[in-house]
């Protein structure tokens, strides 16, 4: 499979990345009930007030990120729309579920049910830009975004020119409180939409090259080094070719996976983290992908992204590795154009 190009990226996150990109900011620390909502942006430029009122957070973030990222790429439209989401449209799912239970199946209205399906974001993007192309939604927990990326790469190897790929998750109001009671880490739970346009060909404004993506449902910690080594080998790269490794470190017990490769594989590589800025959510790794594109373009990142003190003159090739609760691992390789 040929590598592809990233033409543009847009991030809606707990930080003001939508307007300002990645900047030096305060970390999002986990405390009880400290869920951090996405930074409030001005949706008016992209959505009518009526549309904006009707849309749940995830749909709103997704549609706006999609519109802006297509605009930023200098395109009118795309050949395909692919989203990845962990819990999908959880706000509307909860709303309908609560109504079914609380009212014992009576007095229900269809609106929240209609908007509860996981493919609502991709569908609303298609509707809002009148796109009749390929439309797909992945819902595989922490590597939902990477499955979408892989699909995007496949499509660009099948005669398509431009595809839109994004990761989106909203906090919701109900399940997140339950999650918080049993899953705790150093960073807050949060939400966001990180969208990108990918193209088969390099353009003047291309921001990076996507070399490869691989997803794994489970990896034994003892096998991790082997899996990463063979992934690099498949791409004809050595550990020393990787200038920075961008890790989904969040401070929970499963950080042992990251620690293993930090101490045994990438000792002379810049080690970076990002969930202290984005918070944790199933598609937080799409924010990590955004961080990677920012590093390749600007050659710098906020100091609180740096985990170790190794610095490189030139950041050219980076590897992203993420997992959540020891499951749904992903490896993504990017290089500068």
């Amino acid at each position: 499979m040929n590598s592809v190009y990233i033409h543009s990226g847009v991030s809606i996150s707990a930080q003001n990345t939508f307007e300002e990109g990645i900047k030096e900011v305060e970390e999002l620390k986990f405390t009880e009930n400290s869920q951090v909502k996405a930074f409030k942006i001005n949706y008016k430029e992209f959505l009518s007030p009526i549309a904006s009122r009707r849309m749940a957070t995830g749909v709103k973030m997704g549609v706006v990120a999609a519109k802006k990222v297509i605009q930023k790429a200098g395109e009118d439209t795309v050949d395909a729309i692919i989203t990845g989401t962990g819990l999908g449209c959880v706000e509307d799912s909860e709303k309908f579920l609560n109504a079914v239970i609380d009212n014992d199946e009576q007095f229900l209205t269809p609106t929240s049910f209609i908007q509860s399906t996981h493919n609502t974001v991709a569908a609303q993007i298609a509707l809002s830009i009148k796109n009749k192309g390929y439309n797909m939604t992945y819902v595989n927990g922490a590597n939902s975004f990477e499955a979408a990326l892989l699909d995007g790469m496949l499509l660009l190897n099948e005669e398509n020119e431009t595809v839109l790929v994004g990761g989106v998750d909203e906090l919701g109001k109900r399940f997140i409180n339950d999650y918080e009671k049993i899953y705790q880490q150093d960073v807050s739970f949060s939400e966001g939409a990180n969208f990108f346009t990918l193209g088969a060909r390099k353009k003047e404004n291309s921001i990076a090259q996507l070399l490869n993506v691989e997803v794994f449902q489970e990896i034994d910690e003892d096998n991790l080094l082997k899996k990463i080594a063979s992934f690099l080998e498949e791409n004809s790269l050595k550990v020393s070719d990787i200038d920075a490794v961008i890790l989904g470190i969040n401070g929970d017990a499963y950080d042992s996976y990251y620690q293993k490769i930090q101490s045994e594989l990438f000792t002379d590589t810049t080690q970076l983290k990002y969930k202290n800025l984005s918070g944790e959510f199933f598609t937080a790794s799409a924010f990590g992908f955004y961080v990677a594109t920012e590093l390749l373009n600007k050659q710098e990142l906020p100091t609180n992204c740096f985990f170790n003190s190794v610095k490189k003159e030139d950041y050219k090739t980076v590897l992203l590795y993420n997992q959540y609760l020891g499951k749904q691992h992903s490896l993504v390789l990017l290089t500068s154009c």
Binding site: F216, Q217, Q328
Partner: peptide, 24 residues
């Protein structure tokens, strides 16, 4: 989480690498 059923079926049949879930 829609991936939970996929995860359980994958474990049952003994697959751990390429596993994903689609919801359209």
């Amino acid at each position: 989480n829609a991936s939970e059923s996929t995860q359980q079926i994958a474990s049952f049949i003994g697959l751990t690498d390429f596993v994903t879930t689609i919801s359209t």
